[in-house]
């Protein structure tokens, strides 16, 4: 890992100012960024830690939405997001316990790994990504593998989830990395069902609209039994072919619908 300057501001405003320089990079929990820097795949000249900013902590329920601070760890979401059990359950199965104590929701969403869990939860929950500058709807936020609507130096200060009537996340774990080989988050909202898929597509997280339409008409696993997903845009690698992943999306969606509560 190349050396860098380190700053740990205590307010969002100071963090934004610290990130203004060239090649400065925000540091959430570092569970992806530090390994990436060790491999010299990233070499920022400055890291700005977000872990000392109290206004980015906390989990709060406001009406139908649950707002989680951008610097909240996966372990804290698992323990504190009790108003949204499917989300808490999902957060409690990211990585391993030590990784969950450091990794943060804001870091995960800013990175937008194509196999990360949070992008599926955010997209299925019609979440709003709140930054220092604006609010971005999840449908506009995810722009492809490792790509988001964030501008350089923009910080995710919080994420506002719409708590659904029923929801569930099913992950088929790649056993070595514990990332999702395929993960499907199903959320039944008052105005419709949303099905978000991670791990499967070369474009990163996506909504499976055919399944959503079928589940709008009949929220049961049987309703999607006849649906198949085109494997052409799926990820194919040594862990699974495109066809295998496309098939798994259907299986995981059915399991999520059956388990949703």
């Amino acid at each position: 890992m190349y050396n860098f300057e380190f700053e740990k501001p205590s307010t969002v405003a100071d963090a934004v100012a610290a990130l203004a320089g060239d090649e400065a990079q925000a540091l959430g929990g570092g569970q992806t960024l530090i390994p990436t820097m060790k491999q010299r795949l990233a070499s920022p000249s400055k890291l700005v830690s977000l872990s000392g900013i109290t206004e980015m902590q906390g989990v709060q329920r406001e009406g139908a939405s649950l707002t989680i601070g951008g610097a909240v760890s996966h372990a804290d979401v698992a323990a504190q997001a009790t108003d949204y059990p499917a989300l808490a359950e999902m957060a409690g199965h990211i990585g391993d316990p030590a990784v969950r104590n450091r990794g943060t929701i804001g870091g995960s969403l800013a990175n937008n790994d194509p196999s990360a869990d949070y992008p599926a939860a955010a997209l299925a929950s019609a979440a709003t990504v709140v930054t220092n500058a604006r609010e971005i709807a999840a449908d506009d936020y995810f722009q492809g593998m490792f790509d988001t609507a964030l501008e350089d130096g923009e910080i995710i200060t919080g994420v506002k989830f719409l708590v659904p009537q029923a929801a569930n996340y099913q992950k088929f774990v790649q056993p070595a990395s514990r990332f999702a080989l395929v993960g499907v988050f199903v959320a039944k909202h008052a105005d419709g069902v949303r099905v978000a898929v991670t791990g499967a597509s070369e474009e990163g997280v996506f909504r499976w609209s055919e399944a959503e339409a079928a589940l709008d008409a009949d929220f049961s696993a049987d309703a999607i039994a006849g649906l198949t997903l085109d494997p052409s845009g799926m990820i194919g690698d040594l862990h699974g072919t495109k066809e295998y992943r496309a098939h798994l999306v259907g299986v995981m969606t059915k399991r999520a619908v059956a388990a949703a509560d």
């Binding site: 530090i34 390994p35 030590a98 990784v99 104590n101 450091r102």
Partner: peptide, 20 residues
């Protein structure tokens, strides 16, 4: 694995300055 403020963390994936 060590404990930082009572929580298990992987000390190879945390900066020393973050433990200030």
């Amino acid at each position: 694995v060590v404990h930082v403020d009572g929580k298990a963390v992987k000390s190879c994936t945390m900066l020393a300055l973050e433990a200030e």
